[in-house]
Design a protein around this nucleic acid. Structure first.
Lengths: 260, 260
DNA sequence: CAGTGGTCTAGACCACACC
DNA sequence: GTGTGGTCTAGACCACTGA
């Protein structure tokens, strides 16, 4: 049996904060209800129709406020079910000054890790892959894509491309790509990582259980063999709300120089 | 005199791509027009009302498609003026394995740099500042906040907090905080940087000329003196669409270890 | 089944830019 | 002024969830 409107804890003091457009006032009102404890993690909000009726707004206006909070991962909406206060997973830290595998990294902090193959096969190289790997046209590449999870929580998408000359049989790759490469005599000695913030596209958003457009870290890594040839190009997407990359810098006497 | 609707280049072939909700089809249609060259950087789109009329959609639906593209920095809207294809600035790279100042960094690549004071004074420490700087309650902190630009293009917001014992006179800080600190005998020997992706709030969005919620890199840096005491806590926001952080890793023989 | 969010419409008025 | 985007309304129907 659903609560009646008047019983809902939200409506004990029901004045929208002043100033600006209605949807922003409603947004602040909801944020305040969460900050003030009237709504806790996982709690259901009243339905959009109830909110609209109770606050004398149109449903469109209510939706605009709610949508912004969904985009910012404050609320979660489930089609057919309702709108809920998001349960924010604890943040995860990863060192930037080490090149470690995802599995090692999570094991070190005692988190159960699973991963899910999204793709593992050979394909014609895209122009981007050819440029990143220094391939001559037209070539085949091995593609290895995984969804990484900690327990039930999706954390990252990793998409690696390698020349089929380096990795002719991608199906043989097990839990660690690096271990597989090393076993075949391909050891990276150098890597370049490029980190940027992007809004996630809707396909990847679904995999990571995020709203489309949410801020995520995109990390592109190209690793090189001793010969100087590019071994691997990986583009990874890490959830911005759960992942922190940590870099520790030791400073020498020359201003601005990294020592260690 | 404005172009008539029929003359507008967009409407030469005016079929929306198939599949899914109308606003997504319209979105794909606009993206295709940009990708296909029918719309170039800086070009104006037809007004929302024109698009709605021409494509037989409601204005709300048109707005939903346009809003998504604005959030993703594909389009820019100017109140009272119109909707335009965004002009994407060239990306900027910054090394992560060096601790360099913004000014040095830009000078090295020949970009004219300006900065704008947002705040430079003393204030009561927030709980977060006290925690980051290891201060006892209640303390004063110096706050230094700058908007960094390359030419006309805003690139980053830097907000530094220091104990007033370290920096009693924030007004005396010139272009380089580090130079000022060093002149006063406070030299950082170690720093921890924490990098994550966040959606920008509306106040900072205005400063960086981004739509609210756009993906940005947030970098928190705490630097420490030789004594181990925290010297400075800086939270910076870098535009995700213009900034790449690059880290180069040299790998030793022990798998996963950083050498250099 | 009833209730939820997801999409969509046809209007309206306001605030701002540009002429 | 006119035309633009920004906000807002009162409906409607669809798709999905869960009892």
């Amino acid at each position: 049996m659903p609560q009646t409107l008047d019983q809902h804890a939200l409506f004990t003091g029901l004045a929208l904060p002043p100033g600006g457009p209605l949807y922003l006032r409603l947004r602040r009102w909801i944020e305040a209800a969460i900050a003030g404890g009237a709504l806790g993690s996982g709690d259901a909000l009243p339905s959009e129709r109830d909110l609209a009726k109770r606050l004398d707004l149109s449903r469109v206006t209510v939706r605009k406020a709610v949508q912004e909070l969904v985009r910012d991962c404050v609320l979660v909406q489930r089609h057919g079910s309702g709108t809920f206060v998001a349960t924010t997973p604890p943040r995860v830290e990863q060192s930037l000054s080490r090149l470690t595998s995802f599995a090692e990294d999570m094991a070190r902090r005692g988190m159960p890790v699973t991963s899910f193959w999204l793709e593992r096969g050979l394909a014609a190289a895209s122009p981007e892959e050819m440029a990143a790997l220094g391939l001559a046209a037209p070539s085949q590449v091995a593609r290895i894509a995984r969804l990484r999870l900690s327990g039930e929580l999706p954390l990252a998408i990793e998409r690696a491309s390698l020349s089929s000359a380096i990795l002719p049989d991608p199906q043989a790759v097990g839990t660690s790509l690096y271990a597989h490469l090393e076993a075949r005599g391909h050891r990276p000695v150098r890597a370049v990582q490029r980190i940027r913030a992007v809004g996630i596209d809707s396909a990847d958003a679904q995999l990571l259980e995020l709203p489309a457009g949410a801020a995520v870290l995109q990390i592109e890594r190209t690793s090189f063999a001793a010969s100087g040839a590019a071994l691997e190009f990986t583009r990874s997407i890490y959830r911005g709300d759960t992942y922190d990359f940590v870099a520790e810098l030791s400073l020498g006497d020359q201003h601005g120089e990294l020592r260690k």
